[in-house]
Amino acid sequence: MSEKKESSKIIRLAHGAGGVLQEELINFITKDITLKNVNKGIGVEELDDGATIPLENYDKEIVITADGHTVYPLFFPGGNLGTLSICGTVNDLLMMGAKPLALTSTIIIEEGFKFEVLEKIIKSFNEKAKEANIAIIAGDTKIMPSGSLNEIIIATSGIGIKDKEIKIVDNGLKVGDKIIITGTIGDHGTALMASREGLNISTDLESDLNLLLEINESIKSEIKSNYIHAMKDPTRGGIAGALNDWASKSNVSIYLEEEKIPIKKQVNAICDMLGLDPFNIACEGKALLSVDPAQADIVLKKIKSTQIGKEAEIIGEVKAENPKKVLLKTLVGGTRFVDMPLGEPIPRIC
């Protein structure tokens, strides 16, 4: 089986899909970095949504995120690469409890790409940035020879600011915490999949692509009081990826109740058809929160009062037994594990 060994040494698509392989790749890339943080802030080792630079003699810290955005197709129901790049950057900042200030963007374009298409993407990019009230303060462009890149990539770095006291981190889950999701899961990935050529699925399903500003705004005081122990937007890898990540970084288990997890009917139907698990499918406008149990109901109520959080639910609880695992009580009352997704979800066409 020599072929096997050879192929395991190359980078595969699945290395970017938010599963165990991505972890492996990140470790490979970051293991030999010498300086991994500034002023003992959150650094590359935490593998969180971003990093922090605590400012000396000041009660604030700078929050920085980095993100490369690609999407296929470039224009999908509910958004495009431009809006996706802004939402992704802003949401990453928000998920660390920061106020988004500015971003830089590097646009890498394949030779032959149409100006007309670029214009549409840039227009959406700028409009979304305006909506988020985030400044675009620096950028770069590169053109790659035709064939060496698929169309276009946008890489951004987000800059925000937050109180040093606020600690919203992936390893912050505490036993007893309630897990909240701010709305239906799997919309983005499923809408994208359905819009791909060749699958012939007709649906009005749209991506849930959205800025999460409203959510953070609604629970500002709870964030300030550190009642929110962790926040994450479950993009690649879906809620299964995000929750497994939390469970293992916080050394706790998470018990979910399937009945409580909001999923659109179309998402369930399309996923069933394609043999996909909605738990593994990306959201782009949802947040998961791990909340102090005494505050969970009030936090839920506040989130539900926002436009984008109407369908929010408490979907589970943090426990001590079975550490590093995510378990699910199924619709019919059985129990099973929810695994860390392995790689890019591949539709079954069989």
């Binding site: 695994d339 392995l342 790689g343 069989c350």
Partner: peptide, 25 residues
């Protein structure tokens, strides 16, 4: 593993090994 299946049962979502991989710890 499903990404590096040694036998056929680890490949498809109907294969017993791949189902166990996903749902049983």
């Amino acid at each position: 593993t499903p990404l590096n299946p040694v036998g056929p049962c680890m490949v498809s979502m109907e294969g017993t090994c791949s189902i166990y991989y996903k749902y049983y710890s």
